[in-house]
Design a binder for these strands. Structure first.
Lengths: 136, 136
DNA sequence: TTTGAAGTTTAGAATTAGTCTAAATTCATT
DNA sequence: AATGAATTTAGACTAATTCTAAACTTCAAA
């Protein structure tokens, strides 16, 4: 029988390319775009291609190792934080910040009741002005 | 002095094109994309161009007459509902549904405290399976 | 009633993010 | 070493959106 790569744990089956992409995301406090990840990964692995970054991101996302955030204004961003959490987005400069508001998680049943959806996750987004922009 | 169009209320200064775009959005229960709006607006106003639909959407959005929703998976969607509300997105078919969970609005101060942002609005997103997909 | 500035519309080109394709490569098992 | 599945690569392609520059509208002031 042929090896079933799928039986292994995600961490075990990382190719060099996937490893590099994961390291870029884990090494950053912020939320890089696929293009930023590509530029940085290329420093370690000069032959890596754009398509591979996207393939790797899809893989890592499905394996639960990274988290994708789409909030409009351009490209998806990737987050090393995979636990449930919330986001704040600056209306002025676009900065995206993670925070955790456990009370938001508690609203999942109420949200499910109102929407009639079978709930999987909830996520709260705050829009406002970030501390840096408030200063100016 | 030249007339300051900006002094008037948004509703008063709608061009035929902006009017047509607004009517398309107001006539629908769902959340059409720019392309869907373009196709429908063209039935009333055959010469309207794609760029004008986008210009109109930006204008209407800034005037607070429509609401833009970006949740990834392709194009922005536009919503006639401009009051604060929440969204549920189906992980299976991508359907987007509005609902209002006032408890979510109550979390704005707590979210501001955690994130250190000066708050403007909060919005809750539920991901799960919609009633239609649950049946199958 | 013409003028002209400001704003708007138009068509199409340009840009950007992301996906697809097909050939080449890797790699774990035989 | 040979096999075959999975992955990577480069570049073509697609879809969404923005940009550009010329033409058109509007309307207050001359």
């Amino acid at each position: 029988m042929v090896a079933k790569t799928e039986n292994r744990k995600p961490e075990e089956k990382l190719t060099r390319q996937r490893e590099a992409v994961l390291q870029v995301i884990r090494s950053r406090e912020d939320h890089p775009t696929a293009n930023e990840i590509f530029q940085t990964a290329r420093e370690q692995l000069p032959t890596i291609s754009y398509a591979t970054v996207y393939n790797s991101l899809r893989f890592l996302k499905e394996a639960g190792l990274v988290h994708e955030i789409k909030f409009g204004d351009g490209a998806s961003r990737y987050d090393r934080e995979t636990d449930r959490h919330d986001h704040a987005i600056c209306n002025e400069c676009g900065k995206l910040v993670d925070f955790d508001l456990p009370q938001a998680a508690d609203l999942i049943q109420a949200a499910a009741r109102k929407s009639k959806f079978q709930p999987a996750s909830v996520h709260l987004t705050l829009r406002g002005i970030c501390p840096d922009c408030r200063k100016s």
